[in-house]
Design a protein around this nucleic acid. Structure first.
Length: 482
RNA sequence: GCCGCAUUCGUCUAGUGGACUAGGACGCCGCCCUCUCAAGGCGGAGACCAGGGGUUCGAAUCCCCUAUGCGGCACCA
């Protein structure tokens, strides 16, 4: 019984963006879909010291944790196939590279960076494809020995067959095939002793007994190198699937240019993990023609490889917002209040909890709580007095409205102040008596009490704010309007 | 330049030869509700299925060509 073992193998070069994590999500869902024996493995591809970012690992772990993509094996939790950091597996790659040399599937190359640069320039100038020119592949034994004696730095290159074709069955695209003549003699082991991606993935995927390789389709061009390596080692090639990329609105691969696309940024803006998870799953995967709201468990239950699409998907922030709103509305009030707290630390929990039901249908991300409700948690309001005077109103009618409202509200002592229905009825009667439309009357009152023109329902707001503060603010507004 | 992958409403997508006068969702527009804004309800516009050739009684669905987009062409991943 082959168990499912899939890996997410990012390199710590920055904050993972939604495209990276979408691929991780597919890995995770597939592992979990296959039941308790399915393993989701995190492997860090830190073989490029130059591009590495200080807190790169943390950014990856944070992103995965945010979405609850819990890994079964990885650098921090260990596992039977460690280490899970490629920089700690250097000796393994070296051994394998040497084995390829011994078998004649690879060779040492002593070319300098300068020579390679020049070679590429020449090829470009002549309109030729830029590929290694086999210089060291054809080196005589004597030349080779000379380089060794001189202690010249060397790399290991894959000796790609110059004829024939290489094919990789892909469970998303079907068979991928390319002429070997198009494949470069890739460097496998760099002069600093680190492997390149190509050597490292193949060796690790095999050694870690990865059962399915799921990766972005920007890797398609390098599949022949990997196939050739598997063949040289005499290993079985696990099923591969190149999942479509996630694109920015300009249809280009997602990058920092597209604004905030890092997953942790979405977390910080107040996108719920359950919404993010749901939305990301729909980038390149669809269950049917109708369903698009899925809980984590439903995703796991329904996720299958054959439903992964093959065209790249444009990331649509507007739809994500909508979906986040859906999930926010579904939250229990207590839960919402708890999640809101970090975004508005000065709010006392009881007030926030009381506010939750009002805010629920009005925010699309948690961070919006500040714009919509900060007035509740401030002592003094700052606003343009002009706002008090609404459409078809003037200073006199506004004052009249505020005075009437104040008079009515004053009649309700502390204990009775939360009788929204009764108060509302009476205020409406006030408006009618003044010959004002509800919108005019309540508009003035709204600005007086909140300093804003757009707020949650006024009665609820005044109840939550309390009698004393409400009356004080109306009095203040009355001064401003005169 | 070379090689590869892709191509259904603006966007995410359903669709695997007849059930398609192409379905759903976001967004957009209108109406209803209404103390504002949302949410909610109802309705609407929006895709000649990239184009052209075939195959077939019949094609969004199969084949070929072209176009366009994207990706790769490093001692990056």
């Amino acid at each position: 019984m082959n168990q499912t073992r899939v890996r997410f193998a990012p390199s710590p070069t920055g904050a993972p963006h939604v495209g990276n994590i979408r691929t991780a999500l597919f890995d995770y869902l597939w592992a979990r879909h296959t039941g308790p024996s399915g393993k989701f493995i995190l492997r860090i591809e830190d073989t490029d010291q130059a591009r590495e970012v200080e807190n790169g690992l943390e950014l990856i772990l944070d992103s995965l944790r945010y979405l609850g993509l819990q890994w079964d094996e990885g650098p921090d939790v260990g596992g039977a196939f460690g280490p899970y950091r490629q920089s700690e597996r250097l000796h393994i790659y070296k051994e394998h590279a040497e084995r390829l040399i011994a078998q004649g599937n690879a060779y040492y190359c002593y070319c300098t960076a300068e020579r390679l640069d020049q070679m590429r320039k020449d090829q470009q100038a002549r309109g030729l494809p830029t590929r290694y020119d086999y210089h060291c592949r054809d080196l005589s034994a004597a030349d080779r020995a000379a380089h060794e004696r001189a202690g010249d730095p060397r790399v290991v290159r894959l000796a790609v067959p110059r004829e024939g074709k290489t094919t990789l069955p892909d469970f998303i695209h079907g068979d991928l095939t390319i002429d070997n003549s198009q494949v470069d003699d890739q460097v496998l082991l760099k002069s600093d002793g680190f492997p390149t991606y190509h050597l490292a993935v193949v060796v690790d995927d095999h050694l870690m007994q990865i059962s399915h390789v799921i990766r972005g389709d920007d890797w398609i061009p390098s599949f022949p190198k990997h196939v050739l390596l598997y063949q040289a080692f005499g290993w079985e090639i696990p099923p591969h699937g190149h999942v479509p990329n996630v694109l920015g609105n300009d249809k280009k691969k997602l990058s920092k240019r597209h604004g905030s696309t890092s997953v942790t940024q979405f977390r910080d803006d107040g996108y719920l993990p359950e919404a993010m998870l749901n939305f990301l799953a729909l980038m390149g995967w669809a269950y049917d023609d109708k369903t698009e709201l899925f809980t984590r468990d439903q995703l796991i239950a329904n996720f299958t490889l054959d439903k992964i699409g093959h065209a790249p998907a444009v990331f649509d922030p507007a739809k994500l917002e909508w979906m986040n709103g859906v999930y926010i509305r579904e939250l229990a009030d207590d839960d919402l209040a708890t999640r809101l707290q970090p975004y508005i630390p000065q709010a006392d929990p009881a007030t926030l909890r009381a506010l939750a039901p009002f805010v629920k249908t009005r925010i699309k991300k948690l961070s919006e709580i500040v714009a919509i409700a900060d007035f509740l948690f401030e002592e003094d309001l700052e606003y343009d007095p002009q706002l008090l005077i609404g459409k078809g109103m003037d200073a006199a009618s506004t004052s009249a409205a505020l005075r009437a409202a104040s008079a009515t509200l004053e009649k309700y002592p502390e204990g009775a102040f939360d009788d929204e229905e009764k108060i509302e009825a009476e205020l409406r009667a006030d408006a009618e008596k003044l010959g004002q439309k509800n919108a005019q009357f309540f508009g003035a009152l709204r600005v007086a009490v909140t300093g804003k023109m757009v707020t949650p329902p006024l009665m609820g707001v005044m109840r939550i704010m309390g009698r004393e503060k409400t009356l004080r603010r109306i009095a203040r507004a009355l001064q401003l309007v005169q």
